[in-house]
Design a protein around this nucleic acid. Structure first.
Length: 586
RNA sequence: UGGGGAUUGGUGUAAUCGGUAGCACGAGGGAUUCUGAUUCCCUUAGUCUGAGUUCGAGUCUCAGAUCCCCAACCA
């Protein structure tokens, strides 16, 4: 393999390539026949683990010029709700995907539901019964479980296995009409009680369930099981490539068997791929729900949640999530994804797109003592700042500069520990970004001995942050450090929410069995006294910025025009902090 | 201890006919820089194990190890 060759294609692309070339689904070479689907169950919110499945099915369809359906697999009314339907639709659209039939004026346009096919599925079940391949079983759930056998022993056939076809048909109809209580009867396929694959040991196809359904209401008293429903849904929709995660591998023989028994039905190809497991995150619906229900987070869209809505609120971009999915590759290996990778993907995108602003999260007063001597006393100057050095079209803005400023408390130390300290200290000079160079001469402390104010002088020849003119010997003075700052007399206040990872361990609960035990008690800290440059005043929820030298931030929906609230999406990389950490250990 | 899947640097992924183990992220170092950011350069480290076939094995054969999934009327 050398560099001039095309990038390699993952195994699913290769499989579709072959199908298109051979004309398996249509005329050879016609990629438009490719039809995929994303089939969520509406029983929870989408999370980052789903993003890969969404990305895969939509991108395969897009690449070949085919289409991808959004279909809700709503076959279990006990768990499913419309709220989840709405949120899933919103999340997929936000990620930037449009399913077959989608329209921008109606979020429900083109959306499909398994429940739309209940009648067809019922009719096909009758066909199966008619062929002697399914029967009504009167056994209790316990009896069915007890007779399924073990890994090494075959199961024993149900005493009702050889019920006559007519009787099966009649009982199935009566099940449908609600004549039997929950759990009293099921429809089972008649396959092989000795199969080493449990899924083939006369699997249950329908159960009696007297529960109202979010779409069909009271119409049905029986509901199809996943294995019966899913293949039919794929078949009815003309799906060619049914992509799912690895845990369904054992189900493929049943998927194929069921479709093979029916006359004249389309038979899609199921192919399994590995999901990915980000570190420091849980992606089980049960655990995520627990976090919400037990108030460990503020809700499904808490910015610390790995839900799509949480990531959105945190400030992640759809582009960065898609890029991360693509970079991970598609394999059958259950891989973990280092959380720094997720952070890097959003840094990458935001670095190119986010406008820069200055914000001081932990303000320390900095007073310029020679300000009034060297010009109009109390004046505020307007200085130009570049909005985005990565994007010339971003333009510039004016930032006010005056006698009374604030800088980040962490950017000052009385005595510089060594020559690697680029920031401010007594006797040292730094550049205030886009402002002036200042030298600290003195600190003011309160009774408790805490530093409350820095007394500095500025060099008027460094306006805009430029280097001063050379001295008499032609030498130019230099500074190592550039600090962000805000003009205390012309700024706005804000609340800033800083997030750290929700868990302290890579695989929460792995060691203890309880993910809650690994919760990070410091995953949220709220800064109420941040001071921001006034340009941020009009920021609206969802707006993203880089606060220079601090990180990327996104306006939270809790924000009001009077009181801005920012979420920290991710910090900037900080090699100084890392070096300092190492220094401490020495 | 039945069946199904998997295993390549720290992490992820490529090598498609048996022919130089490549790329990305991370980590370490350096250059540039009005963000200790970005960008750029260099370095680092790998074929699960053991046999076998072969001039030659990540790739083929055999044996073994480890990990994941499966005995819901969930999906």
């Amino acid at each position: 393999m050398n560099e001039t060759e095309a990038p390699t294609r993952h195994f699913i692309q290769q499989l579709v390539d072959q199908d298109i070339a051979s004309g398996r689904w249509g005329a050879p070479g016609d990629g438009s026949v490719v039809r995929t689907r994303f089939p969520p169950e509406p029983n929870g919110y989408l999370h980052i683990g789903h993003a890969k499945a969404i990305w895969l099915s939509f991108s395969i369809a897009e690449e070949f010029g085919g289409s991808c359906n959004l279909r809700f697999d709503d076959t279990n009314p006990a768990a499913e709700e419309d709220e989840f339907v709405r949120s899933i639709i919103e999340d997929i659209r936000w990620l930037g995907y449009r399913w077959d039939g989608a329209r921008d004026d109606d979020p429900m346009a083109g959306v499909r539901f398994a429940s739309d096919y209940f009648q067809k599925m019922y009719d096909h079940a009758r066909e199966l019964i008619g062929k002697g391949l399914a029967f009504v079983d009167d056994q209790t759930p316990e009896q069915i479980r007890a007779t399924r056998g073990t890994a090494t022993e075959p199961g024993t056939p149900s005493p009702f296995r050889d019920r006559p076809v007519d009787e099966n048909l009649e009982l199935f109809e009566r099940m449908r009409l609600g004549e039997f209580p929950d759990g009293s009867k099921v429809l089972r396929a008649k396959i092989d009680m000795a199969s080493p694959n449990f899924n083939l040991r006369d699997p249950v196809l329908y159960r009696v369930l007297h529960a109202p359904h979010h779409r069909t209401g009271e119409a049905w008293k029986i509901y199809p099981m996943y294995d019966w429903a899913h293949g039919l849904e794929d078949s009815y929709e003309g799906i060619t490539h049914s992509l799912c995660t690895l845990e369904f591998e054992n189900h493929r023989p049943l998927y194929d068997w069921l479709l093979d028994q029916l006359d004249g039905v389309h038979h899609p190809q199921q192919t399994e791929f590995a999901r990915f497991a980000p570190t420091y995150v849980v992606t089980s619906k049960r655990k995520l729900k627990q976090l919400v229900d037990e108030n460990h987070v503020s809700g499904w869209d808490d910015p610390r949640m790995p839900s799509i809505s949480g990531l959105r609120r945190r400030g992640y971009t759809p582009e960065s999530i898609r890029a991360m999915c693509a970079e991970g590759g598609v394999t059958k290996f259950n891989a973990k994804v280092d959380y720094v990778r997720i952070e890097n993907s959003v840094r990458d995108h935001l670095n190119k797109t986010a406008q820069r602003r200055m914000a001081v999260l932990d303000p320390l007063k900095l007073t310029i003592t020679n300000w009034d001597e060297l010009g109009e006393p109390g004046r505020i100057e307007e200085l130009d700042a570049i909005n985005n050095p990565e994007d010339e079209a971003g333009g510039t803005r004016a930032v006010p500069f005056g006698k009374n400023l604030v800088i980040e408390r962490a950017d000052f130390i009385e005595q510089a520990p060594n020559k690697k300290w680029f920031r401010l200290a007594i006797g040292k000079e730094v550049r205030l970004r886009y402002g002036y160079w200042v030298r600290c001469n003195e600190v003011v402390k309160n009774d408790a001995g805490e530093i409350v104010e820095l007394l500095c002088t500025y060099d008027p020849t460094t306006r805009g942050g430029e280097s001063p003119p050379p001295d008499g010997e032609g030498k130019v003075r230099k500074v190592k450090g550039t600090l962000h700052w805000v003009c205390a007399d012309d700024c706005i206040g804000a609340e800033v929410r800083l997030f750290d990872r929700l868990y302290t361990s890579e695989q929460p609960g792995k060691a203890t069995g309880d993910h809650l035990g690994d919760l990070n008690p410091d995953s949220l800290s709220v800064v109420t006294g941040a001071m921001l440059e006034r340009e941020l005043a009009g920021a609206a929820p969802g707006d993203r910025f880089q606060f220079e030298r601090v990180g990327y931030f996104c306006v939270d929906p809790d924000s009001t025009p009077e009181r801005l609230v920012f979420n920290r999406t991710v910090t900037l990389k900080d090699s100084w902090a890392r070096a300092a950490d190492k220094g401490e250990k020495r």
